[in-house]
Structure formats: structure tokens, C-alpha cells
Design a protein around this nucleic acid. Structure first.
Lengths: 249, 249
DNA sequence: CAGTTTCGTGAACACCGTTAACCGTAAACG
DNA sequence: CGTTTACGGTTAACGGTGTTCACGAAACTG
């Protein structure tokens, strides 16, 4: 049975996250005191819920990623199930739009140095991003339908093989061993997507290129040829650009 | 003539940068008070030299980038001038090694949100990275010798054409108009390099993959085929891996 | 009911960036 | 040369941060 106490505690956690996200959205800084004040508490009280400021950051980052992921899913669902390529690309566009619209949130989630490298448990060090799980699922859908080339286990380097067979981020028990290499392809895609988007968010690219999104489209096309769907690109690019155009939120 | 006053002032600037870099290197945080204390001054005195904390950060970031670039240049010079491909790749390896060995410095220089996007002068907003200039030079050397495919001006999108003809980062007056598209290729390479390295530095990749550097090598190879030097890769990969092995500093 | 855990407070510490008023000294000028 | 100015530093203070500690009230537990 779930006692009244625990329910209250759970509600407080939710309020902490909600208030934190509000602060971020308003452009304010995320700080223990600010969160506490807005909740009608004092800062030390928050230490009953999080062990440190960094823990608060991690908690909020996790929830922000989770919330953003449903946005990515909506973008994917704007395309029919029969077109997993378009679904994947639209999710990528949604990721970019979200990142550009919420730079501080993006920084929190994706440019936050994850714990100490010398941490004893590397297992929990890498925060499980629901977005990572979601994009992996999209890539799996795409593979099942069109079947882009995936390296076999013995084509992978030893380190990659280990990482792919015993992945840190989430469990893919439903993934048969013969296309475990799909996870490697996902990581490849993640690096190319991350490269453009992060540079755009940080402003380390020509503003005109950012505004037009041409480098992003180029990166998408480049990963597209990696997935051997270059023949489909004339059909796909208009879909991508259309979704880039209406980036309201 | 340079007065005694200005020389003293210049020396103080140098000391500020030196002390700041020492602090970063020691794992301490970069703060006005810490810098001032180590210089035997009080914090407000620093306001005679920098207008704000952010200005100090920008100054230090600029100098760190400059210093790191000479390291990249040394790595390039480990290869003969006749082999610009190896020179470029070795510089990339040096960039990765430096980033992994100096994560805070990397974050400061390359993951530091560059000013407000609504800033009036986008010209000076994007800090001129000497590393960017250096890598561009390497790419130019490579092009002059082996001549990878470069988009012509009318192949580029309008935004890209503008950005390439009137680049924000540095001046490339010596660059003839007919291979202005080279800058675009440089940006493509920059995004792929940045994607892997940033993810590695932030720990958003499987530790085993980071340690082995396999994703980095994959990214290099991928950009290699973009430069149409895949036939040369069997020769190049050992060079890359060798230089990755001895990443002492 | 008594005992214990949970959750909050207030005070305090050690930092941080930033501003203000102040002042000696070194350069610049008439 | 003397006078003036401006530079480069000081101290004090304000408001902000994360964090620790001792304490108390309120809520669960036996």
C-alpha cells in the first residue's frame, strides 16, 4: 500500500520539477533558493529531496528530456506508420527545433558533463535519456521496413561489440543478436545529429547558416546516404523543410 | 611609442590569463575573486581590465584556443608537408586528445553559448577561433594538393553562399571565389568532428566506445569518404590510431 | 499514549559577481 | 618645475549562491 506520506513526497518531487522547469522557461537561473522560494520553502528544505544542486539538475534534466521526447514522438506521428523514414527525419527536425527554442534546456540535458569519469558506477553515470530510447526505436522501425546496412558483430571493434551487446543506456532485450549492430548505427546517427544541433545552439556557426538550417539539412542528407536512402531523398527533403518551416513552439 | 604604462597594463593582462589558465588546469573554478587573490589583488581591481565576468571568460577562452591551436599545429607538423591528408587527420586527433584531457577548457571554448543571439553586432559575437582558421588552412592545403570535390557557388543555398562569400570568422581574402565553397566543406567537417568529440567529452557515449576511440575513427573515416580519399584510408587509419595511442598531454 | 521518523525552519559559513566611494601615485600638461 | 588628471588599486557593502547544523513541530508507528 502507498501511504499518504509517500504520496505527499511524490507530489513535492513533481512540484520541484515543475517549478524548476518554469524557472528555466522564464529565462531565470535554476537555483535551489529560487526553486525553494517559489515553493514557499527555504533552500535547506530541498535537501530532504535532493542530495545536492547537481542532483537537482540531473533530476530536472531527466524530466525535461522525457517531456521533450513526447514532442519528438508527436512529430514522428505526423507521418504515417508506413513511412518510418519520414518519421525519423521529422523527429530529428523536432529535436533541432526544440533545441534552438530552448537552448538552456538543451544545454542542461545534452551538454551537461555527466558525473565524474572516475565514478565507481559507470552504469548509472550515463543518465538514461528517454529521447535516446525513442530514437533507437525509430531506427529499429526503419530497419525492419527498409533494412539499411548494419554491421555484424564481428565487423565491429571489440569495444563497440561490448558496448552494443551490453548497452548502458536502457535495455534492448527484444533486440536479436544479429542486428545488435543497429545500436552502433544509432550512435553514428546521434553524433551527426548532435554535431550540427549543438553547434547551432551554441552559436558556433554562421547565423545565416543557422537561420536557414542548411547545414542541418546537409547533415540529415549525409546520414541519409549512410542509411542508403539517397534515392528517396528528393521525396524526403521537402518533408523535412516543411516541418522546419513551422517550428512554432 | 609604447609607454611604460601600457606595457605594465599588457603584462597584467597576460598575468590574468596565465593565472586563469592555471586555475582551470588545477581543476579549480574560474572566478574573479580566485584570479584576483592569486595575483595578490582584490576582485574589484580586475574590473579595471575586464568589464564583467563573462568578458574574462571570453578573454581566457580566446587565449586557450590560441594556445591549443599551436598544439594542433605541432601534431600536423609531425607529418610531411607532402601529405596534407595525414596532417589534417593528425590535427583532428590532437583536437580530440586535447578536448578529452582538458574537458573544462573545451567546454569554455567550444560549448560556451556565444553572447545573446539578439546581439546588435553578430559580427563580433562569434569569437574568432584561431583553431577554426588553422583547420581551414589545413583544408586548403589538402584541397590544393589532392582536390576533393567542393561545391560551386551556385550549388550552394543562398544562405550558405552569403556565409561563404562574407565569412564571419576571419577573412579569407586570399581565397579565390571559385573555391569559396571550400569554407562550406570546412563547416561540414567541423560539425562531424565536433559531434563526436563533444559527445565524448560530455560523457554522453558509452565509456568503452570513448576509451577505444572507435566512434571518433568512424567519424574521421566518414568525413574521409566525403573528401573522396577512401582509397587512401588503409594507409591513413594506422597513422591516426598511432597518434591516438600516444596522447600523453 | 509514548517513541520515532519525517520535514520544515533559522542561523551561519564560505563563496560568488558587482557597485560605490575613496586614495595614493605615476604620467601628462602648462 | 609645479599642477592636474587619470589610472590602478583599496575597503565596504549588497544581494546572490550552495551547503551544513541544530532545532522543533508535526505526522506516523508501536
Amino acid at each position: 500500500m502507498v501511504g499518504r506520506r509517500e504520496r505527499q513526497r511524490e507530489a513535492t518531487y513533481e512540484e520541484i520539477v515543475r517549478v524548476s522547469r518554469d524557472l528555466l522557461a522564464e529565462g531565470a537561473e535554476l537555483s535551489l533558493r529560487a526553486v525553494a522560494a517559489r515553493m514557499g520553502m527555504t533552500a535547506p528544505a530541498l535537501y530532504r529531496y535532493v542530495g545536492s544542486y547537481q542532483e537537482l539538475v540531473d533530476l530536472v534534466a531527466f524530466e525535461i528530456d522525457k517531456a521533450a521526447t513526447v514532442g519528438f514522438a508527436e512529430a514522428a506521428d505526423s507521418q504515417p506508420l508506413e513511412d518510418p523514414t519520414a518519421r525519423l527525419l521529422c523527429a530529428c527536425v523536432a529535436f533541432r527545433s526544440w533545441a534552438l527554442a530552448h537552448p538552456r534546456e538543451f544545454t542542461l540535458v545534452f551538454a551537461n558533463p555527466v558525473a565524474d569519469p572516475g565514478c565507481a558506477r559507470p552504469r548509472e553515470a550515463v543518465t538514461v535519456h528517454s529521447s535516446a530510447l525513442f530514437f533507437t526505436r525509430l531506427m529499429l522501425e526503419l530497419w525492419e521496413r527498409v533494412g539499411y546496412p548494419v554491421p555484424s558483430l564481428d565487423e565491429l571493434s571489440p569495444a563497440a561489440r561490448e558496448a552494443v551487446l551490453d548497452p548502458i543506456i536502457g535495455k534492448y532485450d527484444d533486440l536479436p543478436d544479429d542486428n545488435r549492430g543497429l545500436i552502433w548505427v544509432v550512435m553514428e546517427g546521434w553524433t551527426t545529429l548532435y554535431g550540427v544541433v549543438a553547434l547551432e545552439v551554441f552559436g558556433h556557426l554562421d547565423p545565416r547558416v543557422i537561420e536557414s538550417g542548411d547545414m542541418f539539412v546537409t547533415a540529415m542528407r549525409r546520414f541519409g546516404v549512410r542509411l542508403e536512402l539517397q534515392d528517396d531523398w528528393p521525396r524526403l527533403e521537402p518533408i523535412v523543410r516543411a516541418r522546419m518551416a513551422d517550428a512554432v513552439d
